[in-house]
Nucleic acid binder design. Structure first.
Lengths: 347, 347
DNA sequence: TTGTATGCGTTATCAA
DNA sequence: TTGATAACGCATACAA
């Protein structure tokens, strides 16, 4: 006798319950447009109630659209990541939908509705502190997701792409110690973000390698903003024994340090060497051009796009977190300590 | 007798010619998914051959997607425009697809194919020097288009949104003359772009207003890039009678001027005042923060989005070109001439 | 009316 | 085989 404890929820059973044909249910599942809104709702409800599960992979049709979601587009990273994602998606013949949800649930809802209506194939989230039940929502829509995470928030259960923050902090610090600096200030970022912690720890490791002591007085907390960098520089330069070099946890704060140095009547790099982190265009065009740790944002975006597209094709991604390597870019904001007395005009 | 000189190209006649049903042709016209690729191609060909024209407006369904097309995403304007477009589109429940076509016809083709397949509702082009037959292609797809044009290329026959470049050049120059400057250098942009011409003419008008002569020696041609600004500054400061202020036709060149000034051992604004044009974040975070002419890029993007969405709804747009006004933002890179002797240490 | 768009079933097809 | 998607036509619902 066949036991009927699991009646095998199939598309056909849903169709029967909803009083529609099998293809109609299939259309709802695949977000096709030609289903009446009422019918769609009824079917979606039944799918949920009966706990329908897809059999084999997703439909084989090629992806057409991926969604790239930010909290805010005024983050200086945004363009770089957009570039990387657009490039990789475009190469695969896939369009890139960019959205900013400003941390508002209403905006996220509107976006999700739009996403479902146009049957997006995959989602790349750059917004790390995201409403957790947004993820379950995405799961129920069967849309694969990947997180790009330059900020370094603890990973969720989706593939995450980051950068080697610790190694970057280390190489920046080693560069400065290599130039002969022995008192090196650090302008930290928001302490709750892992990336900040990792960069700070890299800094400490760099000091240790050079046999230098860690002096808490030389670490000032910032908020990743320009102004906090300027304030930090002011504080560091006012110390009894001021640093000869400053490593800021991102480029914006590094440029703020420039401004703080300028306000103190000093010059970069003659009086103070400065190193940043991110390698944004802002730093390339500063005066002097900024020595900084390059974070491969475009590559991270490209990898994220290729990863979601593989997921769309039914592949399962093995490693939950991937870190691309940072690298130091030496420009003109750092100089050896020895040169300092020479370059000053007076005293 | 009815004359049969115009056999009234209807969907039905196309359907007959293609050997398909009327709904199938309708689906092709509306970019629906459930049409076989071959069938779609055959029908599209016939629609073109017979010169089919839509009867009443577009279908009444709300817009879901607009396309935003750049030549390159590494333009510093890009983010600002994306922000403006995304914001306005999102508010209307519409998604924003961002694409870069890198001036390559192949990329444009791939984008158009994707666009047709997902039935985009409207297009915003930021890429001004665009393949002209791309426009006809768009027209045949019945997708409305708008051009956002900060570069100032001659208008096509689609609604165009720009900024008041001439007025911006004027206000920048008046600001400098108002501070007492009498020798004011100008770093021009690419001379073939109208925006460059307009800014230059605004500069000349500003000099005239203050009763100052126009000295061709004080105008150096740049290419809108950082390095060309640095070179221009070097040349201007090497003149027998160097300028005390420099107005650069965009922010990147203005920051290049900073660098040129720094390389000459001088300081901004103590020795040379600098004004830029665009008001990009790069200028806000420079040291000293840059006085510049604000170009309302985000507003331009927002207006463009609202305009295409109105066109999607069947409205016809009256004015072919619209210019949003620029405004001077005074920060710390400009100072009165009188202060100069005081702030110098030596001589 | 006539022209066009929508919703959904039928039939064929395809993957496991 | 069976579960699922693809392609297209019929009937109908609208708009001019």
């Amino acid at each position: 006798m066949s036991d009927d404890q699991s009646p095998a929820v199939t598309i056909a059973s849903i169709a029967a319950a909803a009083g529609v044909s099998v293809p109609t249910v299939s259309r709802v599942l695949n977000g096709r447009s030609d289903v009446a809104p009422q019918t769609r709702q009824r079917v979606e409800q039944l799918l949920r109630d009966h706990g329908y599960q897809r059999r084999g992979g997703r439909p084989r049709g090629r992806a057409r659209l991926v969604d790239l979601v930010f909290n805010d587009l005024d983050s200086p990273w945004a363009v770089e990541i957009i570039r990387g994602v657009e490039d990789a998606a475009h190469a695969a013949g896939v369009g890139t939908v960019v959205t900013a949800i400003h941390r508002r649930a209403s905006a996220a809802r509107a976006w999700l509705d739009n996403l479902a209506a146009r049957a997006s194939d995959g989602v790349i989230l750059v917004t790390s502190d995201l409403d957790p039940d947004l993820h379950s929502e995405l799961r129920s829509l069967h849309v694969p997701a990947v997180v790009v995470d330059p900020a370094g928030v603890p990973a969720l259960d989706v593939p995450t792409i980051g950068a080697t923050n610790w190694a970057g902090g280390l190489s920046a610090t080693e560069h400065l110690t290599g130039l002969g600096h022995r008192r090196i200030g650090f302008v930290a970022g928001i302490p709750t973000l892992w990336s900040s912690r990792a960069r700070l720890d890299g800094y400490r490791a760099g000091l240790e390698t050079a046999g230098l002591p860690f002096d808490p007085e030389l670490v000032v907390e910032g908020d990743f903003g320009y102004e906090s960098g300027a304030r930090a520089a002011h504080r560091l330069l006012g110390l009894a024994e001021p640093p000869t070099a400053v490593f800021a946890a991102n480029d914006q704060m590094a440029l703020g340090v420039y401004e703080g140095v300028r306000r103190s009547g000093m010059r970069v790099p003659d009086d103070v060497s400065v190193v940043g982190f991110d390698d944004l265009p802002e730093g390339r065009w500063s005066s002097p051009p900024l020595t900084t740790v390059h974070q491969p944002l475009a590559e991270m975006g490209g990898l994220a796009a290729r990863t979601v597209l593989r997921m769309v094709d039914g592949e399962t991604i093995e490693s939950p977190r991937l870190e691309l390597s940072t690298r130091l870019v030496v420009r003109d904001s750092t100089a050896p300590t020895q040169l300092r007395p020479v370059s000053r005009v007076g005293s």
